[in-house]
Computed example of a mutant assay.
Amino acid sequence: MKILQVFSHNALVAKSDNDESMVLVGKGIGFNKKKGDRINESAASEVYVESKKQQLGETQ
């Protein structure tokens, strides 16, 4: 998974290998990290995954 943005030492946004955006939260997870670095999801204590909602009028 690749880091998109570091919010603080304890939170960051990353994109998984299957193109899902996630917010990762954990003690020190963003420390000394920068955009483009690789990170393992298991380093996070909490993971929030972006929800894909359908637009009005779209069909499946």
Rank of each mutant, 00 (worst) to 15 (best):
D37R: 08
G28L: 14
S45M: 04
A14L: 06
G28V: 02
E46L: 03
A44P: 02
V25S: 13
L56T: 06
Y48D: 02
E46M: 02
L56V: 09
L24W: 00
A11L: 00
N40A: 12
M1E: 04
M1N: 13
G36T: 09
E50R: 03
V25E: 04
M22G: 00
A14P: 02
D19H: 08
Q55Y: 10
A14M: 11
Q54G: 11
S21F: 10
L56Y: 14
A11S: 11
Y48S: 00
Q60F: 12
K27V: 04
H9S: 15
M1V: 15
K33E: 05
N40V: 00
N10H: 14
V13Q: 08
G28M: 12
K53R: 08
L24D: 01
E50Y: 10
A43M: 14
N40L: 09
N18K: 10
G26H: 00
D19T: 04
V47Q: 10
K33L: 13
K33V: 01
E58L: 04
I3G: 12
H9Q: 09
V13M: 13
L4Q: 12
V23L: 11
S42F: 02
V47D: 01
S45R: 08
G30I: 08
Q60S: 12
G26Q: 09
K33W: 02
V49W: 05
K53I: 12
